[in-house]
Design a protein around this nucleic acid. Structure first.
Lengths: 118, 118
DNA sequence: AACTGATGCAACCATACAGTTGTATCAACG
DNA sequence: CGTTGATACAACTGTATGGTTGCATCAGTT
């Protein structure tokens, strides 16, 4: 699944707030409406609703009508997209470590050899 | 390793920009100075320097004097902290799925049983 | 000590976010 | 079909981001 860079931007920006991270966590259960969510936080309902809107724009949650509420549910796929991106950094890092180990294996006894700092 | 919420905020905020994500990727190698990094992007040196400052405040990179440059290096530990946090959401999610499966196993034949929407 | 490569920082502009209060929409229920 | 529970949106404030240009600092090199 290809995700454009501005989308990724929005996902990480959405995570850059403690309240929003908590909303994502709560919405994994997919049981609460916006008003119920708002009751957990020391701010106005409108503020929480704006947080929900940010999360929705980032694709991290969806809303569905149930009765007269709109139930908020976390979109796990989007969460996995973000995690996958962080994984890629680790892959690059591990590849580099492996490469260093190869070099050490190929040319033993050269540790500490002085090279100019350019 | 305990990381305070404002720190987490800064880490994710730092990731919410394509240029900064690319700087983190490049700095895994830990070879380039700020000026060299800046040469890769279509913006002023000062702009890149500010991005580097944001990453540094987030603890995602460190700088070290080498010759007359300051070499930028990614702090993989911080990266892992962010990934670990995303992992936790997945853990919550999987725990919930497991719980659902348990319920299905315990009470077979109740799928589709109508419950009021509260 | 002077030069200069490399980085840091301040001031400024436009845009976006986090919060507030107030008003408007909208659909379920009696 | 009117009431009301629940959500959405608009306007405003303070603060942060992302970019610019210009100047200041700091440490190698000569």
């Amino acid at each position: 699944m290809r995700v454009a860079s501005p989308d990724i931007d929005r996902v990480f920006a959405a995570f850059a707030d403690h309240t929003r991270r908590d909303i994502v966590r709560r919405a994994i259960s997919g049981k609460e409406g916006v008003l119920e969510l708002a009751s957990h936080y020391p701010m106005s309902f409108a503020a929480v609703q704006k947080h929900v809107a940010v999360l929705e724009r980032a694709g991290l949650i969806t809303k569905q009508r149930v009765g007269r509420r709109k139930v908020v549910r976390t979109n796990m796929d989007r969460l996995f997209v973000a995690r996958r991106l962080l994984d890629q950094y680790e892959e690059v890092w591990r590849a580099r470590i492996d490469r260093i180990n190869e070099l050490i294996a190929e040319r033993p006894g050269t540790i500490g050899t002085k090279e100019p700092d350019r």
